[in-house]
Write a protein that binds this DNA or RNA. Structure first.
Length: 277
DNA sequence: TTTATAACCTGAACGC
DNA sequence: TGCGTTCAGGTTATAA
């Protein structure tokens, strides 16, 4: 479910009711996520103030005086702010209950998500093992055509796999990787090092464009994504190739093809996106 | 060091 | 109706 725009939508959604609020309790119903949840948090968190709610890549960072809670939504996670008395549903694994009467509730059927703790004693959260090696934010100035060009030299993997690698750039999940390559007229199987500087420039610009547009519209609705206020995202109407196999390309009417590339579905127009090996 | 593959897990959709 | 198969938005650990 969540790619970067969905995580950003979640961050914006929970901020009004959760930021600067005091944590009353931390309830774990199922600690068995991607990594086990540290149950000591049930003693550590109560009484602490959520000082800020930030995002790094697809991680949500809830900062407190004693440390930062890192929350990743994985493939199927959903974080919502609900009145405390709201009935618990299946797969509601974690509650961060607040003194203001609301609860931040994590629901994650597949449990690929994670809730991790980085204590203040361990230094800045950016030094956390899972954050320290992340590439730049796609919407920052640090991510641009020159960066992409330099990074891709001598890399022999498919460009789609390359841009989906969070150590290169964060936030280009499967939907947006497919869409940005289509917009750039680059075949997803093109060897990364074969891209010209101009193509890298175009691709970087389009990754920014597609992510910014998706954030603007509240994320993509696929199956079950809802923002924390329960509204769906509306970006799905703008998808050109993702999940469009067999349908005509919006530009040239050629049938959109689907292949599997590194275990992930990959959609492209064989005419607009010419292959370069 | 780089790239490919397996793994984590549930549920929906589909074919028989 | 029910059973088996396939696939899904992500990311890491491990193997090659």
């Amino acid at each position: 479910m969540p790619e970067l725009p969905e995580v950003e939508t979640t961050r914006k959604g929970i901020t009004p009711k959760a930021n600067k609020q005091v944590i009353e309790s931390f309830i774990v119903r199922n600690s068995n996520l991607r990594w086990p949840i540290n149950l000591e948090l049930q003693q550590i968190l109560p009484g602490l103030v959520i000082e800020s709610i930030q995002r790094r890549g697809k991680y949500l960072l809830l900062k407190t005086e004693l440390g930062t809670l890192l929350i990743h939504l994985g493939m199927s996670g959903n974080l919502r702010v609900l009145p405390k008395e709201t009935e618990v549903q299946k797969h509601d694994h974690v509650d961060i209950s607040l003194e203001n009467g609301y609860v931040i509730r994590l629901n994650d059927p597949r449990r690929f998500g994670s809730v991790l703790w980085h204590s203040a004693e361990q230094g800045d959260v950016s030094q956390h093992k899972l954050l320290s090696k992340l590439g730049p934010e796609p919407l920052s100035e640090a991510f641009n055509g020159n960066y992409l060009y330099e990074k891709s030299r001598n890399r022999k993997i498919a460009i789609k796999s390359f841009i989906m690698n969070s150590h290169i750039v964060v936030g280009a999940g499967n939907i947006y990787a497919n869409e940005s390559l289509f917009m750039s007229k680059i075949h997803p199987q093109t060897i990364a090092s074969k891209l010209t500087k101009k193509q890298c420039q175009l691709l970087a610009d389009n990754i920014k464009t597609v992510l910014a547009a998706a954030i603007e519209q509240g994320g993509t609705t696929l199956k079950d994504f809802l923002s924390p206020d329960g509204k769906p995202g509306y970006f799905v109407q703008k998808l050109n190739v993702y999940d469009q196999a067999g349908k005509p390309c919006p530009v040239c009417k050629t049938e959109i093809e689907k292949i599997i590339l590194n275990q992930r579905a990959c959609y492209f127009c064989p005419k607009c996106q010419t292959r370069k090996l």
